[in-house]
């Protein structure tokens, strides 16, 4: 999957001296996932998917991955809005209720 991932080695500054000189931070640094927002999760049926790119384009979170053999969903950052399933022309994505094991 070619998606930005959580930087598990991120460390907060340990002293005033370690703080940046102004209110800035490294761009593109993620320290936490958005998975906990989800009530329903999109599940992709690769057999029905025609890789039309629609879900990849319209996902507000960019959570659809098209880099592998089949499209995949980055569940760390998918918020479960359901746009991909609603818009999918071949109905290849269905929304399933999350269990209690979501982080």
């Amino acid at each position: 999957m070619q998606k930005p991932s959580i930087n598990h080695s991120f460390q907060y500054p340990g002293s005033i001296g370690e703080m940046p000189s102004g209110p800035c931070a490294d761009a593109g640094v993620l320290v936490e996932a958005n998975a906990g927002w989800r009530v329903f999760r999109p599940v992709l049926d690769a057999a029905k998917c025609v890789k039309c790119l629609k879900c990849w384009l319209i996902c507000p979170d960019g959570a659809i991955d098209r880099s592998g053999k089949d499209y995949a969903i980055d569940y760390a950052f998918c918020k479960g809005c359901g746009i991909c399933a609603y818009e999918c022309p071949t109905k290849s994505i269905r929304m399933e209720k999350e269990g209690d094991d979501v982080e």
Partner: peptide
């Protein structure tokens, strides 16, 4: 050509509400 668009996401992991068009 949408197939030529880069894979890399330059906006990712944001906290917008689910379904936010501004995110897209």
């Amino acid at each position: 050509n949408v197939r030529d668009l880069p894979e890399r996401e330059l906006l990712y992991g944001h906290k917008a509400c689910p379904g936010c068009a501004a995110g897209t």
